[in-house]
Amino acid sequence: MEQILDAAEELFSKHGLHGVTLKDVAQRVGAHHTLLNYYFEDKKALFDAVFARRAVVTSQRRMRVLEAYDTECQGRPTVEGALRAFLDTDLDLYIEGGEGWKNYAALGAQVANTPEWGAALMDEHFDPVVLRLIDLLKRALPGCAEADIFWGYHFVTGALMLTLARTGRIDKLSGGVCRSDDFGAVKDRMASFMAAGFLSVCARKEQAT
């Protein structure tokens, strides 16, 4: 089963849900396609199983770190501290987890940008941990409008998904100075960059009032 999920994950990450058949996956693992039909009702069921396998790992891991951070900061979270608990914990999986996790990263970027059915998968697997982050951000920014905090998360997750997609565009734009697969470089910068954005928007709104 792990071989089937690994093979499907790699294929889906490169070709998407509609670019892969059950026969493709069966051929990759050297099995007859009837074996996949025995375990999975259809291709979407296989895709959902592939996505869920690692989603539960990253979601639970981030939730544990967010909870630990909330305890350590004694109820006084900072924006960057909350973002680092959420972002750095996830990025560490892609830095340390090998090619399988990188394939999942690309798959996750696809799912997040497919409103027809991907949004439901994201809701199912990630809403609790996202709302835990939002709670910390609200407490770190007590004077900030709720809408600004949610928009801030929207921008954070957009940048994260583009990073996980590893499109190679930044490699070309920067002439090789930056690499889209350098998750370590992203980890060094993203939380600080996004925290500054939250603080700037909220400070601007407070000055306006």
Rank of each mutant, 00 (worst) to 15 (best):
D88I: 03
Y104H: 15
A105V: 03
L22C: 01
W117K: 09
Q74Y: 02
L137K: 06
T114W: 02
G75R: 02
R139I: 13
E99A: 10
S59C: 11
G97F: 03
L87W: 01
L46T: 05
Q110D: 13
L133Q: 02
S59F: 01
C73Y: 06
L46V: 06
G100E: 12
I134H: 10
P115C: 06
R53E: 15
L107Y: 04
G19R: 10
K14S: 13
C144A: 13
F86K: 07
E72S: 07
R62D: 11
H15E: 06
D42V: 04
V29N: 09
A119F: 00
T89S: 07
P128G: 12
L93Q: 08
T58P: 02
A109H: 06
H33D: 15
Y38H: 14
V111L: 03
A120H: 06
L87V: 08
D90E: 14
H125Y: 10
P77S: 05
L22R: 10
R64H: 14
Q27M: 04
A8R: 01
V50S: 02
G118H: 10
R54E: 12
E41H: 12
E67L: 15
Y69T: 08
T89M: 07
L35K: 07
E10M: 00
L107F: 04
R132E: 15
K44E: 13
D48L: 02
V57F: 11
S13F: 01
H32E: 15
T21V: 09
Y38F: 12
M122C: 10
V20I: 13
H18S: 11
R62K: 14
L17G: 02
N113A: 12
L66G: 03
L46N: 00
D135V: 01
L137R: 08
V56M: 03
P115I: 11
Q74V: 07
R54N: 05
Q110P: 00
E67C: 10
K14T: 08
V29L: 08
W101M: 12
D42G: 00
G118L: 11
F51Y: 09
A119Y: 00
A145E: 13
L83P: 04
L36M: 09
D123C: 01
K43D: 09
G98K: 13
A145I: 08
Q27D: 14
W101V: 07
T34K: 02
A106T: 10
F51K: 01
V79P: 07
T78I: 08
I134G: 05
E99T: 13
E41I: 07
K102A: 06
Y94T: 15
F47Y: 09
W117H: 12
A147L: 15
A68F: 06
T89A: 11
E72A: 10
L107P: 03
Y38G: 04
K23Y: 13
A85P: 10
L11P: 08
S59T: 15
G98N: 15
A106W: 05
V50L: 04
R54A: 12
K102P: 05
T89I: 12
P77C: 07
L87H: 01
K102C: 06
F12M: 05
W117E: 08
A105N: 04
L35E: 06
C144Q: 08
Q60V: 05
K23G: 14
R84C: 02
L17I: 14
A31P: 01
A109S: 15
F51I: 02
V25H: 01
